[in-house]
Design a protein around this nucleic acid. Structure first.
Length: 84
DNA sequence: ATAATGACGTGAT
DNA sequence: AATCACGCCATTA
């Protein structure tokens, strides 16, 4: 494919463990500042396990959504990694 | 190709 | 602090 989605996945893959990034930040890293919503859309359709999409949270500090068990599972994972 | 949707973000109320 | 309204962009119907 080679589009914004691939770029976003690459960026998210680089997020270190125990650390989190906001959708807006990821979008900016991918080269599309302001495309936070698009990042969410992409993540929703992303099923690649090499991409720690659970490290991506909202800029308000909220967890956001997750397609692998809901926001609760996501929060649990983040706490398990030390990203409190 | 157009319209509607949603793992967001910021500003106004 | 909480809620409402508008904008933003990729995806889906």
């Amino acid at each position: 494919m080679k589009d914004f989605a691939d770029n976003v996945r690459s960026v998210v893959r680089q997020i270190p463990k125990g650390q989190t990034a906001t959708y807006g930040t990821v979008a900016a890293m991918a080269g599309k500042p302001g495309a936070a919503r698009a990042v969410g859309t992409i993540m929703k359709n992303n099923f690649d396990p090499t991409v720690p999409c659970h490290r991506v949270i909202r800029s308000d500090g909220k967890i956001g959504e997750y397609n692998r068990g809901g926001p609760e599972a996501k929060r649990k994972l983040l706490e398990s990694e030390g990203a409190i």
